[in-house]
Amino acid sequence: MKILYFAWLRQRVGAGEETVDLPADVKNVGQLIDWLKTRGPAYQAALSDTSAIRVAVNHEFAGLDAAIAAGDEIALFPPMTGG
């Protein structure tokens, strides 16, 4: 699975993009974030406040309960500030 990080999430995680092999019990966005947090202090710090995180699955906004699968592109980012 491809995971993208943007803005301060990218800086805190320390990478803009990575490919991960998903554990079998990770089936939705919330479980993915919980699993990512176990991967080290940088992830823990970046993902500690889920209310500050927005998610897109394959370029569509998604909630924490959205189902995910191995071939998906998941993006994690703060609320948008364009315009």
Binding site: P78, P79, T81, G83
Partner: peptide, 27 residues
């Protein structure tokens, strides 16, 4: 269009000031 764009298009602003750079918070 401009109202929706600000909250729905995935852009993020990083401001540079004399005190360093900071990400703009959503309003």
């Amino acid at each position: 269009l401009i109202d929706w764009l600000k909250t729905k298009a995935p852009f993020w602003k990083l401001e540079e000031t004399d005190a360093g750079a900071r990400w703009v918070a959503a309003r």
